[in-house]
Every structure is written in C-alpha cells, then in structure tokens.
Design a protein around this nucleic acid. Structure first.
Lengths: 199, 199
DNA sequence: TACAATAAATCACATGGTGTAAATTAGTTT
DNA sequence: AAACTAATTTACACCATGTGATTTATTGTA
C-alpha cells in the first residue's frame, strides 16, 4: 500500500526509496527522461520492478513525491533562519543565500532536477515557492516604497521577479555554478533593488 | 525519407504535418504529455501510424521540429520590423510588443506549448532567443549606461532579464492573458529600465 | 493525358514496457 | 517467538514502438 500518512520508520521503506531516488538521479545523468522507464529504474536501484509500484503509481508520481521532498528541504533551510535583530529586508537576502548554499551543497541532485530541461516539475515548484515569498514581501512593503508608484502592476512585478530569480538559479546551476552563493545573493540584491527602490 | 532540405511543395506533406500538429495541440489540451503516444496522435490526425514515422523519428523529434517552426515564426515577426527613424531602444520595445501580439494571436497554440509545464523545449527555445537578443542589446550599450557601474556581472544580468521576460510571458499566457500586448510591453519597459538606468 | 515519382495506407512482426495479481520469502517491531 | 509488513518471484494481458514489404493514391511534369 502507498501510505504517506504514517511516519515511515521502517528502514526497508527508507532504503528502497533512497535507492530509487539515487537510481533516478543516476539515470538522468546518462539519458533523456523519455528513455526512462520503471524497468530501468528498478534495475539500477537493484530492486524488483513490482516493488517500485508499492511506492509510486508511475514515474510522474515519483517525480512529484521527490519534488515534494525538495520543497520540504527548502522550507527547512528557510525556517532554520535565526530570528535576530537584523531587518526583515536583510533577512530576505540572508535566506536566499542559505537557499543557494543548500543547492550548491547538493549540486549533483539539483543539476539533474532544477537544471535539467526534462523535469519541469521541479522548476515549477521552486517558481511557486518564490512567488509566495515575493508576494508576502511585497505586501509587507505595500505602504511605502512599492511598484505602484512607478506604474507597475503588482502581479506582473511578482511574475517578473520570481521568474528572474528562478531562471538565474537554473542558469547558474547549468553553468557549473561559477559564482559563490554569497556573491550571487548579493547580485540579486543589487538587481532587485534597482527595481523597487528608485521612485 | 525524412527530408527537410528540399522545399516541401508537395501538398500531401504539408497536409500531413499540419494534421499532426493540430492533433498534437488538440491532445495536449486533453491529457498529459506522458499519455501522448504516436498511436494516439496518428489516430487523432486521421493518418496511419506508419505515416507519422515518415515525418518524425519519434515524439521528441516532432516537438523539436515544431519548436523550430515557432522560432522561425518569431524571427519572421521580429525581422518584419520597419527600419524607421526611431531609436534602437524604442525599436526593442516595439519588437517585444509585436512578439506579444503574435503570441496573443495564436494563443491556443502557445498556451499548450509555452504555457504548458510539460513541453519545456518551447520555453527553452524562447529563453535562448531572448538571451541572444539581450546579449546583443547589452553589448551595444556597453559604453555608457550599463550594469557594470552598479557592480552587476554581465552574464548574471543577462540570465536575470531573459528569465524574467520569458517567465512573465509564460505566466501571462497561463493566466488567460489579462493584459494587452501593448500594456505588457510597456510594463517590461518600466521594469527593465529600473534595472539599468539608475547609475 | 499519360507517366514517373513519391506520399500514404495496409498488413505484419519482434521487442519491450506497463500495471496488476497471487503466493512466498525476508526483515522489523513489540 | 509471534505478528506484521516490505520485498521478491512468477505470471499474465495489454499496449506502444519501430521497422519491413507491398499496394494504393496523389502529385508534378513530359
């Protein structure tokens, strides 16, 4: 049975899911997603093909579940932020830096998921997460320096900035991460600030 | 034989390819790309499955060829720009407006290709095109008002702006295009100008 | 208009992946 | 040690793929 409600403490389940995830990452480095099959994944994971179906309905379902895990990881990184004396704004940029560090730390995984042109589920999820964060941020700042004064529609500004952040992270990954997380976060700061500061 | 070198003047070829393209667009509105099969496409296109293979090696190959056509259309729209007395800069924004108009005009097609989370080939191609355009544009402006003075790395600025444009167009499409091409192009003007004007 | 060329249809076949079922083995928890 | 459950094994029906060989239909042209 596919059961995600209970805490899966059974080490066999954890082991199998890890093997599947590793096999998936492994195969994605070698071949296109189109050539991916449950058979191949099971073979590479050294498990039975039937066992795969005990955990996931099919490959898209597997991708969704793994993407869920990615978002949980991101949330974990973001929420582990110490609530200290710095301003909300500074917090935002520190948060982004932590996110980039996390991605850099697990680069092999994120290169084949976020970086691949073949698994749009992952970029879609990151995009949605960034949209939420930026929407919150804009609503906090709604009173003083916001986009309205420059005649910019709020939803367009959100689309624009979320896409820009997500796309830049993807390009950064695809190009072997030529900048440190700290440097890139700083560049984001400069770029976004140019957008909403000069009114 | 799959032959793209000759001008395919034979109306049978044009007819078949159009039927395939229409069937593809049709099916993508109904089901996920994972459930797409050559059989289904051929059935919907009212052609023989074997005929499909006379034109395309497989479904990814078909997507690539259709995406090629999209880029050709874009280039056509861009190059049909009248070379008049307005500045290069104004030309850029008029060009973008024409592009958005073209997309709006063929909304059903672009909704299932650019707008779909399932066919990343199309967004990838648009992204590459925007990258080229923006790279050219930045190199033209390299002398005076550019990103360098604000301490922004050129490649990062290109990633950022290309992603922002592409992502916003996709979001615009996914949300039933709530703004006119003219208005959206103007918003782009405001947003991008905030990036590279204030130094 | 008739002919040569070629696109499309038809039929057929081997191959391989899918999803599920039933029974058995192996590992985990209490 | 017993109860539980994950994983394996084997089996089956179904569907999609890609290709080959042959025939039919459509097209551009001599």
């Amino acid at each position: 049975m596919i059961n995600n409600t209970k805490k899966h403490k059974d080490p066999r389940i954890l082991r199998t899911r890890l093997l599947i995830k590793e096999a998936f990452v492994d195969l994605l480095q070698e071949m296109d997603i189109e050539k991916m099959s449950v058979s191949r994944i099971a073979e590479r994971a050294t498990i039975s093909r039937v066992t795969f179906y005990l955990h996931y309905r099919d490959i898209p379902d597997m991708l969704e579940k793994i993407a869920d895990g990615m978002i949980e990881d991101f949330q974990g990184v973001i929420n582990s932020q110490p609530v200290n004396e710095s301003s909300t704004e500074d917090m935002d940029w520190l948060m982004l830096e932590r996110l980039l560090e996390h991605i850099a730390k697990h680069a092999t995984f994120y290169r084949v998921t976020l970086g691949s042109r073949k698994t749009p589920i992952f970029t879609e999820r990151l995009f949605n997460m960034l949209m939420e964060l930026i929407t919150e941020r804009l609503e906090d700042l709604e009173s003083d320096n916001n986009f309205y004064k420059a005649g910019i529609q709020k939803d367009i500004a959100i689309w624009y900035t979320s896409s820009a952040l997500m796309g830049t992270i993807v390009s950064w990954l695809r190009n072997e991460m030529p900048y440190t997380p700290h440097f890139l976060a700083k560049q984001f700061y400069l770029l976004v600030h140019n957008e909403d500061k000069n009114y």
